[in-house]
Amino acid sequence: MGVLIDDNTKVLVQGITGRIGSVQTKWMLEYGTNVVAGVTPGKGGAEVHGVPVFDTAEEAVRETGANASVFFVPAPFVLDAFYENVDAGIKFIVIVPEHIPVHDVMKMKETARRSGVVALGPTTPGILVPGKGKLGIMPASLFAPGKVAIVSRSGTLSYEFAGILSDNGAGQSVVVGMGADPVVLMNLPEILKLFEEDKHTHGMIIVGEVGGAQEEMAAEFIAAHVTKPVAAYIAGKLSPPGKRMGHAGAIVRGKAGTVQGKHEALQKAGVHILASPIEAGHWVKKHGLANNA
């Protein structure tokens, strides 16, 4: 059992015949993921690395019992395929592609909310439960089974933190890429709730970045509901201030968004702030989160 992936997870790969979909399917299979179906309209009847390909998600679910999916389709086609997967009964969807219009993501988020579907991304490397399986593109060599859950807004930094933990003898219970877009389908507090409830997770690391209000909202959640030790790193303290989100953004969320503001909010909730990634190694040791502890 693990967070969002368990022994009953049967994976559909949306866009399986593409260059990226095909090679990532191979790597997901090699990692032990139960990939049961692929979908590419017009390619029904084909096979990719032994996985049967269907024209529609509805057929794929009917024939194979797929209940989760991972997307490798170009951004303009994601919204339609998302509706299709939800209608076909898929309950967990990982959206890997980047550059999906925000107005499409808002519709996807509302659809997920109404239908009770759980979804990650867009612009996410996906999710990996070490030794169990993965939905997405995380490079397997950096991960090891253990007790620490990682959630990251940035894909590449999720690899960096998992790698640093693994180097320090601290494996991971799960690594979740939240996605880097202005709107993501699963917010940080919802992910932390899964970590808190997961019995294999003994501590958690949040890898955030400048901008938005996810970390501030997470701080409120942690103060009220989280009992396990939490550390956080926020990237971007020296990044040039991005395009200002007009006055409207500032009115909606007040001072949210700065690295300093995020540090303060998280510290107040009892979260340990990591000044740089390498400190994650010291933190896990200090809290007895290494595998031999």
Binding site: A248, I251, V252, R253
Partner: peptide, 25 residues
């Protein structure tokens, strides 16, 4: 008057104020 995307809720948010100008925030 302004409209933006509330990133956390994932919804548009419409704002109106009787005070405007350079010191709106």
């Amino acid at each position: 008057m302004g409209i933006t995307v509330d990133g956390f809720e994932g919804k548009p948010v419409v704002i109106a104020s009787m005070e405007g100008g350079v010191h709106i925030e």
